[in-house]
Design a protein around this nucleic acid. Sequence first.
DNA 1: TTGTTAATGAAAACCATTTTCATTTATTGA
DNA 2: TCAATAAATGAAAATGGTTTTCATTAACAA
Lengths: 162, 162
Amino acid sequence: MPRGLRMRHLAMGPPWWHGRFHGAGFRITIPREAILEVLSKTQKHLSAEEIYLAVHRLHPAVGLTTVYRTLELLVHIGLVFKFDFGDSRARYELSSGPKGARHHHHLVCTACGRVIDYTDFIDEEVELLQQTEKGLAKKYNFKITNHLIQFYGLCDKCRSKE
Amino acid sequence: MPRGLRMRHLAMGPPWWHGRFHGAGFRITIPREAILEVLSKTQKHLSAEEIYLAVHRLHPAVGLTTVYRTLELLVHIGLVFKFDFGDSRARYELSSGPKGARHHHHLVCTACGRVIDYTDFIDEEVELLQQTEKGLAKKYNFKITNHLIQFYGLCDKCRSKE
DNA sequence: TTGTTAATGAAAACCATTTTCATTTATTGA
DNA sequence: TCAATAAATGAAAATGGTTTTCATTAACAA
């Protein structure tokens, strides 16, 4: 049986993101473990408070302040995306799991605030985006690390109410 | 010599957006005129306070509250776009002038916050976006009215500081 | 194990935005 | 042209998500 990285996961070794932390000189703490645990077990776009509540269930000692600070850190090192869907509170999402395959875009209903993730057309989009990124990077000497694509409109429910 | 509304604009006729207001049942007031005036004379992404300050120069009686309320209204009727560039204050931009040709996307520097508008590649993007919108609209029964595209990364100045 | 320093939690501060409410003003009908 | 009336406004207060402060705790290198 092969060893190495593979084994570490089957044997429940350190989570995949520990390396990212150590590499950047950050400490691995219980609140941080808990927050990443929560984020990695949901597909939803959680707000800081929702994350706090979920973490609080497991570790009541963890405070909201730490949740905010940790999220800021995670966004900074690129482990988490921060979104604004227009409801005056930020939403957070793991940018990619250990398998690194989560990228999606959003449909935001401007009437009820519902957010739909979609991955359809992502391939075509990504191809174009890469060309665009390349061109923009060159023209503006900009180092592009990320992009945000959101479509706004009315979801099926809100359409029928009109 | 003709009197009435016409005169107020030096025979230039009512601004192009008056129709949009009357049609939706909203009144045309001095603060609203002033706010649209300010928005139509800049290419920048102004914050509510910046708009307030600019309006204040012309009409000191106009308050910040009214600016917020008017912007909300303008966003609602689609005359203005509201953006979030991550600096904890919303930015506003006229969605289209009378000639309706202003659409662009943004490059946002995550280090210094600089925002660059670009219209390059817009044609190719728009073509793909239309296909995507069509597909998404069908699949999710979503009526898409708008989209947001932003690229994040480091601008030339911040790159060289690294 | 221990010393150093980052990380934390509670409470207070912050600040963009929203709400309240009394007053003003644009519009409509006489 | 002039009220009538309901929308719009401004000042001040409230709101609420997020950040800061500061004393305490805990991660981790030696």
